[in-house]
Design a binder for these strands. Structure first.
Length: 178
DNA sequence: CCCTGATTCGC
DNA sequence: GCGAATCAGG
């Protein structure tokens, strides 16, 4: 992929919109976030918000990576984990909205504020399990680490994708208890 | 580990 | 000019 005018314009727009380089790379397609960052710099539009005062960055010289003689051959683009992709496919089929069972009985774990995510900070690998009431300020997403392509952290995956049989059994035992 | 942008330098 | 590799930092 080359940097056509259209792609450059889109890059400029998304960058000024505050999207991260990796997000922009995803939008554009066919480029890595490194390519995006490189282009941003060449365009001279780096450094949006984040003034980061001490702009003097001593940058160490690169430790020479390959001997000058042999052709280094870039590593192939990592094709995204097959396992994660497969799992994502499964999950996409799962009745995500329908689950979240017995929340009253399952004490919601407390997520440290620093890890909580808002709709704006969710990424491919942050847990998107909603906590609290969306209609109030007391609402956030779990935001902890999740595997690539998996929408929830390990804890919430357990809850969300608990086998139906288990849930039925659990529901029965709850009914029995009450 | 995950992520972010910044920089270098072979191509 | 391009962007992978690498760096520094959160």
């Amino acid at each position: 992929m080359s940097w056509t005018n259209e792609r450059v314009e889109l890059l400029k727009k998304l960058w000024s919109d505050g999207l991260s380089a990796s997000q922009i790379a995803g939008e554009l397609g066919g480029v890595t976030r490194n390519a995006v960052i490189g282009k941003v710099h060449r365009l001279g539009l780096s450094g949006r918000a984040k003034t980061s005062n001490s702009s003097a960055k001593p940058r160490r010289p690169r430790t020479s990576t390959a001997s000058p003689g042999n052709s280094p051959k870039r590593a192939p683009q990592q094709p995204q984990s097959i396992g994660a992709t497969a799992l994502k496919a499964d999950i996409d089929q799962a009745p995500v909205v329908a689950v979240k069972p017995n929340l009253e009985r399952l004490p919601e774990l407390v997520v440290p504020i620093s890890q909580r995510a808002s709709i704006l900070t969710l990424t491919e690998r942050t847990c998107k399990w909603p906590i609290g009431d969306p209609a109030t300020d007391d609402f956030y997403f779990c935001g902890r680490q999740s595997d690539a392509g998996v929408p929830y952290c390990a804890h919430h995956c357990k809850i969300a994708y608990q086998p139906v049989a288990d849930r039925r059994r659990e529901r029965k035992s709850i009914a029995r208890a009450s």
